[in-house]
């Protein structure tokens, strides 16, 4: 579950962004900036909680840069997202100069009384730090908001047909900016989870493609929160499995084991998109299209 949490966080944020019709390929950049923001602040203040808040803020600020460019300056979303990733990687290693090799303050584990005493299932499900549960709560919350609330309906309307939503008087740009900021905050949290809990230290480029895997998992989950959750746990399971295999000293070279999560992500993508009608239908209709009121 620990391996899957950063991916869940980033993927659920990106899901909301894509539901609003914006394709933000900068997840990787936002994650790594979140990772260093969270790490730096946690080390400075000694409190991982403040670190996570800072990570969310950092990710959101960076994502708003993307939002302003794509929503007000109408730049190409694919190119801007890539730019965000490149910029984020550079910025993060710049910010992380003084933090290499330091250990962050430990994030306390939250043992749920009674439940964590259940044999086998207890330690697996109920003995984690707070962020694991926050991630789960976010998934459930996102699902509920998208499905049952007015705000969720507006968000989906903007994503499916921005011209119609505009004609109905909804502020397309504002809705999208909020979605982008939410996505950025989630990606930042995911990055901070990597640097504060999972690894836990700061190294340059430490997200190592986690952001891209999160993007793939949104596709895999067909833009549905619970399938995204499933995909992320599947991926987390594979990661842990290959790490255990490495530790167990199986006769496969380490490098080939390490590449397996990426290969499996690709394989899953292929399987998902080959049933093409299904995948194409569930993607938001205005995904990646530019919106300008006059056009």
């Amino acid at each position: 579950m620990v391996a899957a949490t950063p991916i869940i966080l980033a993927a659920i944020g990106e899901l909301v962004v894509e539901k609003s019709g914006v394709l933000n390929l900068g997840v990787e950049g936002m994650m790594i900036v979140g990772a260093i923001c969270g790490f730096a602040i946690a080390v400075q203040t000694g409190s991982p909680f403040v670190g996570f808040v800072a990570a969310a803020l950092g990710g959101a600020v960076l994502s708003l840069l993307f939002g302003i460019l794509t929503q007000y300056f109408l730049s190409n979303q694919v190119a801007t997202g890539l730019g965000l990733t490149l910029f984020g990687l550079g910025l993060s290693s710049l910010m992380g100069q003084g933090y290499i090799g330091i250990r962050p303050p430990a994030t306390p584990k939250l043992e749920i009384p009674l439940l964590s005493d259940i044999p086998v299932l207890g330690p697996v499900l109920f003995n984690h730090d707070l962020m694991v549960y926050v991630a789960l709560a976010l998934v459930v919350g996102t699902w509920a908001v998208l499905k049952f609330t007015r705000a969720g309906l507006i968000l989906r309307a903007v994503g499916e047909n921005h011209d119609a939503a505009h004609a109905l008087g909804y502020k397309v740009v504002r809705v999208r900016l909020m979605a982008i900021a939410f996505g950025g905050a989630c990606a930042g949290l995911g990055g901070a989870y990597l640097s504060l809990v999972r690894v836990p230290q700061w190294t340059e480029g430490m997200t190592a493609g986690a952001g891209w895997i999160a993007l793939a998992i949104v596709v895999f989950g067909a833009w549905r929160p619970f399938r995204v959750l499933l995909g992320a746990y599947l991926f987390g399971g594979v990661t842990v499995l290959q790490l255990n295999l490495q530790a167990a000293g199986v006769a496969i070279p380490v490098e080939y084991l390490s590449m397996s999560p990426y290969l499996i992500t690709i394989a899953v993508l292929v399987i998902m998109s080959s049933g093409r009608a299904k995948a194409a239908l569930s993607a938001p209709a205005c995904l990646g299209k530019l919106f300008h009121a006059s056009s």
Partner: peptide, 23 residues
Amino acid sequence: KFNTNEILVSLLLVYVAEFILAS
């Protein structure tokens, strides 16, 4: 053949290539 998103696949293959390089 499978209508898979080329952005994600080509990028994920970078990481695979880096591991091949190391090996």
